[in-house]
Simulated scan of single mutants.
Amino acid sequence: MVSIAVESAEMARAAWAAAASVPDPEVPCVTVADLGILRAVEIEDGVAVARVTPTYSGCPAVLAIELAVEAALRDAGFEARVERVFSPAWTTEWITAEGRSKLREYGIAPPARASNSIRALFGETQVDCPRCGSSETERVSEFGSTACKALYRCATCREPFDYFKCI
């Protein structure tokens, strides 16, 4: 009986690793695990079931993400199913420290930590430049390369950059 439990735990770890390796199609420097949208991977009746929460309900990449996670599980030898989970809603607080670091290295300012300030609701967040670290930045557009990012410009190094909005 113990060997079955160990085998099942190993299968679950292998399934998690396969699903967690899937890059985000819009921001390929981070994986679905880095973003925290991969909620769980469990083995249920021999099927690897991955649970994914979209960053927001209108995210155009959610179907591509689900298909990529399912393909990664199948490529790893699992029968697979992906379930979309809406509750609780995803938040940028779920982005891992490694994910935040990867975003910064890629040239995208990671989201500020959640704030109770009313100013944060209107995008009035201090955003440091991911290239030079300067806090002398300005928002150019509420929307950047995707709806979940805003376009900023650094006054110090003069470079434009995306800011992953805090949700």
Rank of each mutant, 00 (worst) to 15 (best):
V62K: 08
I65C: 01
T92N: 00
T55R: 13
D75V: 03
C59S: 01
R84I: 09
A61Y: 06
E83D: 11
R74I: 13
E79Y: 10
S87F: 07
V85G: 09
R74N: 07
T55F: 11
A76L: 08
I95H: 10
V62T: 15
E83G: 08
L63G: 06
A97K: 03
A71Y: 00
Y56W: 13
A50T: 06
T55E: 06
A89W: 03
P88Q: 02
P60W: 06
E66D: 11
C59I: 01
L63I: 03
A68S: 12
F78S: 12
E79R: 11
W90V: 14
A68Q: 00
T92F: 09
A48T: 15
S57Y: 12
G58C: 10
D45M: 04
A61V: 11
T53K: 01
A48F: 08
S87I: 02
F86T: 11
G58D: 03
A97C: 05
R81I: 07
A89C: 04
A76N: 03
A76C: 07
R81W: 01
E83L: 12
A68T: 00
D75A: 15
P88R: 01
D45Q: 02
D75M: 10
A89R: 10
L63Q: 11
A48P: 12
V82D: 05
Y56R: 14
P60F: 02
R51M: 11
A97Q: 05
E83K: 13
L73V: 12
I95Q: 08
L73M: 14
E44V: 14
A76Y: 04
T91A: 04
P60S: 09
D75K: 10
V47Q: 08
E44F: 05
L73E: 09
V47D: 03
T96A: 04
L63S: 01
F78V: 00
P54S: 04
V49M: 10
A72T: 14
A68K: 00
T91D: 01
E66P: 08
A64K: 06
A71K: 13
L73C: 09
E66A: 03
A48H: 05
V49A: 15
E70M: 15
A72Y: 04
S87N: 08
I65M: 01
E83F: 07
T91F: 02
G46H: 10
G58I: 07
A72Q: 04
V52L: 15
E93W: 14
I43M: 13
F78P: 11
V85M: 11
F78Q: 11
V82M: 06
T96N: 13
V49F: 12
A68F: 02
A72P: 04
T92D: 00
A48G: 15
C59N: 00
E79P: 15
A80W: 03
P54E: 14
T96C: 09
R51Q: 09
V62E: 09
P60C: 08
E83H: 05
E83N: 04
V47C: 14
T91Y: 03
Y56Q: 03
A72E: 08
I95E: 13
C59W: 01
L73H: 09
